[in-house]
Amino acid sequence: MIDVHIRPATADEAENVLAFWKEAAEGTSITDDVEGVTRLIERDPEALILAESGGLLVGSVIAGYDGWRCSLYRLAVRPSHRRQGVSTALLDAAERRFLAVGGRRGDAMVLEANERAQRAWASAGYHREDHWRRWVKPFPAA
């Protein structure tokens, strides 16, 4: 395991986080822009958790809590730092956050085709619930 520093992101890091996700995360979202990331951080300053090693951003997870659900998104680790405990440290931080606010269950969004991510979530103790499907509706720009 490498030495990592876990901390919440700040709004001025939105561009750096987006660049990191292009390298380390699978898939994209309509909220993958500076405005979306900044809005997340301003609304919930503890939600976007970053992992750094030697000053380099090596991992991220969004641990969102809305008072009802504990939602996990964007668990990503820089390819050169995978299998070194970064995702474990990030998920530990996310789960501590959830427990502190009374959360009862973590709910992770995982791409169907991302088998590596599915293995990572399974090894962290999460399991797939096939009886649920995600339904989405993009809203028009304001």
Rank of each mutant, 00 (worst) to 15 (best):
2 I>H: 03
2 I>A: 06
4 V>E: 01
6 I>R: 01
8 P>D: 03
8 P>K: 00
8 P>S: 12
9 A>P: 06
11 A>R: 04
14 A>N: 09
18 L>V: 12
18 L>G: 13
19 A>R: 15
20 F>N: 04
21 W>P: 14
22 K>C: 06
22 K>W: 00
24 A>Q: 13
25 A>T: 10
28 T>F: 14
29 S>D: 06
29 S>R: 09
29 S>A: 09
29 S>K: 02
30 I>S: 12
35 E>C: 07
35 E>A: 15
35 E>F: 09
36 G>Q: 05
37 V>P: 00
38 T>C: 14
38 T>I: 12
39 R>K: 14
40 L>A: 05
44 D>E: 13
45 P>W: 01
45 P>T: 01
46 E>H: 08
46 E>L: 05
48 L>G: 01
49 I>F: 03
50 L>M: 10
52 E>W: 00
53 S>V: 02
54 G>R: 00
55 G>A: 07
56 L>Y: 01
57 L>R: 05
58 V>I: 11
58 V>P: 13
60 S>Q: 13
60 S>R: 07
61 V>K: 01
61 V>C: 07
61 V>M: 02
62 I>H: 01
63 A>N: 07
65 Y>E: 04
66 D>E: 07
66 D>W: 04
67 G>K: 07
68 W>Y: 14
70 C>M: 04
71 S>A: 14
72 L>F: 10
74 R>P: 01
75 L>G: 10
75 L>E: 03
76 A>C: 12
76 A>N: 10
78 R>M: 08
78 R>A: 12
78 R>G: 04
79 P>S: 06
79 P>H: 03
84 Q>P: 07
84 Q>V: 00
84 Q>I: 00
85 G>C: 08
88 T>K: 08
88 T>I: 03
88 T>R: 13
88 T>S: 06
91 L>Q: 05
92 D>C: 04
93 A>V: 07
94 A>D: 06
95 E>L: 13
95 E>A: 03
95 E>P: 00
95 E>H: 11
96 R>W: 04
97 R>G: 04
97 R>M: 09
99 L>F: 01
99 L>K: 13
100 A>I: 02
102 G>W: 05
107 D>I: 10
107 D>A: 02
108 A>C: 05
110 V>W: 10
110 V>C: 11
110 V>F: 10
115 E>S: 13
118 Q>E: 12
120 A>T: 15
123 S>P: 11
123 S>R: 15
123 S>H: 15
123 S>K: 15
123 S>I: 05
123 S>F: 07
124 A>E: 15
125 G>A: 09
125 G>L: 09
126 Y>I: 02
126 Y>S: 02
128 R>A: 08
130 D>V: 00
134 R>F: 05
136 V>D: 09
137 K>Y: 04
138 P>T: 06
140 P>L: 14
140 P>R: 13
141 A>E: 15
142 A>W: 06
